[in-house]
């Protein structure tokens, strides 16, 4: 369960050193788009040694490798697969690539005697991936999906806007597929780092479609994202009342009851529970 993920270029030592301090629920060390082709080796080495030696790693360590349609991904995986990482982010995800990635990870985990199973976060950023998203979420290791609107807009030959009308369908598709399998639906980054109001609006849009987390491209975006992707105080208060009333009625053997004139049944209790789980995980209660 995440609210925020933060991209950090894999070849920037100063940013790596502080990766754990910004409060991102997951930090994505990037080997793909943020790293120039001439810097790939440096970035792999830097991330490898950072993960091996740094005593304070982020809550979740994600590494974005280069796509399986490139010649870089094998070296990426060779360099970074270890118990120090939690998740691989796969760009331009397709079902066939996810299956292949699972095979490679299974082999590396066995060879390196890893003590945990590495998760995968696919990026849906091609039109074909949007069409495949219902299958993508069923692939092994998939723990959530990131919507990548910049590449998707390019693939769709549409202009990317702050309002985001052009990604309405993709947002809905990703959110629906993820919710169906209880995975994180992670919204695309808001790329104007100097527009805090725009970021707020964009978060609101994403939430309204059912996205439950958002990627950040700058640490200064994290406070806003973390705050907005937490349930509101009003919702938490309501959920706490539902939780309390549920326990009280359950003690009397009553499963459905009324609160403030509204029926509280199993789906409502489950919604209240989800709100409280998230609020408790991130210290809002």
């Amino acid at each position: 369960m995440r609210r925020s993920t933060l991209f950090i270029p894999g070849n920037n030592p100063a940013m790596l050193q502080n990766a754990d301090v910004f409060g991102a629920d997951a930090v994505i060390f990037d080997l793909e788009d943020a790293v120039n082709i001439t810097e790939k080796d440096n970035a792999r080495n830097l991330i490898h040694y950072y993960l091996a030696t740094h005593s304070n790693l982020p809550m979740e360590v994600v590494v974005r490798i280069n796509g399986l349609d490139t010649t870089f991904y094998q070296k990426d995986l060779e360099a970074i697969v270890s118990d120090n990482i939690d998740t691989i982010m796969l760009p331009k995800a397709r079902v066939e690539y996810l299956v292949k990635l699972d095979e490679i990870l299974t082999r590396l985990e066995k060879e390196r005697k890893l003590t945990k199973k590495i998760k995968v976060l696919p990026i849906v950023e091609l039109a074909i991936s949007v069409l495949e998203v219902n299958e993508v979420v069923k692939c092994p290791r998939v723990d959530g999906v990131l919507l990548g609107a910049e590449d998707l807009s390019s693939d769709m030959e549409v202009t990317r806007t702050k309002e985001g009308k052009e990604i309405q369908y993709a947002r809905s598709a990703v959110a629906m597929a993820c919710k169906a399998y209880q995975l994180d639906a992670i919204d695309t980054p808001f790329t104007d780092v100097n527009d805090p109001e725009g970021l707020c609006k964009d978060c609101g849009n994403a939430i309204s479609y059912g996205m439950n987390a958002k990627a950040a491209i700058h640490p200064n975006q994290l406070d806003t994202i973390n705050e907005l992707f937490l349930p509101t105080e009003k919702l938490i208060t309501w959920a706490l009342r539902v939780e309390k009333a549920t326990a009280e009625y359950a003690a009397k053997g009553i499963g459905v009851f009324s609160l403030d004139g509204k029926m509280i049944d199993k789906p409502v209790m489950e919604r209240a529970n989800k709100i409280l789980v998230k609020a408790r995980k991130f210290g809002a209660i």
């Binding site: 502080n18 301090v21 910004f22 700058h218 640490p219 200064n220």
Partner: peptide, 11 residues
């Protein structure tokens, strides 16, 4: 400052 570390300290 725009430095995220400086801003975190400030907040």
């Amino acid at each position: 400052t725009r430095d995220p570390v400086g801003l975190k300290i400030a907040r």
